[in-house]
Design a protein around this nucleic acid. Structure first.
Lengths: 112, 112
DNA sequence: AATAAGCGATACCAAAAGGTATCGTATTTA
DNA sequence: TAAATACGATACCTTTTGGTATCGCTTATT
């Protein structure tokens, strides 16, 4: 059950799916309820939900003939964890910028 | 110059492009240098770079006949900003979990 | 001046993504 | 029990995506 970064990023790459997540952050919803919010068929929404589930962004519980979808934070954590890799660059950005400006007129000597 | 969330998310949805970003977080690189790190043609890498640039994840400066690509934090910020929308859910997750457990035997009578 | 290096742009291709239509199944409800 | 509801699954279609091959332009290099 290794968190698959690719599945999570891919799931977030579609605007409809991101909107679904925002809806689900407000309340749990069945497939039909989600479909009502969009201009596409239930089958299309179901496909999106499958992708979101694979990306660990939602979880589903069955209740009679209904499937209730709710937000799952695991996939979001996978993505934010990946993004933290760049924190050190974020911190160093000002330094790099200053270095760039300092070296702006004099090209580095050995490549001339 | 509104930051286009879709472009940034889409740019991050490909594993090759994420790897390129990690490379660029270490050092600026030309297209040829990046290509050396991957098992695909320069044309393919160039396409990825164009998508990364559109997502505000890299910037390019021309130096003679070379194009030097460097990491740009704007696109990363666009994505992290979007993700912060779910912070409140993150905080409330324990609450919701407890509520779910409490309601586990008695089906909720209404949709509250 | 001739040649090599670094790159942009385009045409082209196979596979994946996003969508619809349709049929089947399980669960409520009248 | 019969009908409606909520959904799963599949086949099918069009567009997008990720890749190659190729040509040509500009900038070094000799």
């Amino acid at each position: 059950m290794t968190p698959d970064t690719q599945d999570s990023f891919k799931a977030l790459a579609d605007p409809t799916r991101r909107q679904i997540l925002m809806q689900l952050s407000q309340q749990e919803m069945t497939i039909a309820e989600i479909t009502d919010q969009f201009d596409m068929t239930r089958a299309a929404i179901k496909k999106h939900l499958t992708i979101l589930e694979k990306g660990n962004l939602i979880s589903v519980k069955t209740k009679g003939r209904e499937r209730i979808n709710s937000l799952e934070t695991d996939g979001l954590k996978t993505v934010t964890d990946w993004l933290t890799y760049f924190d050190h660059f974020w911190d160093n950005k000002l330094n790099r910028l200053q270095t760039t400006i300092a070296n702006n007129n004099t090209d580095h000597p050995d490549s001339d």
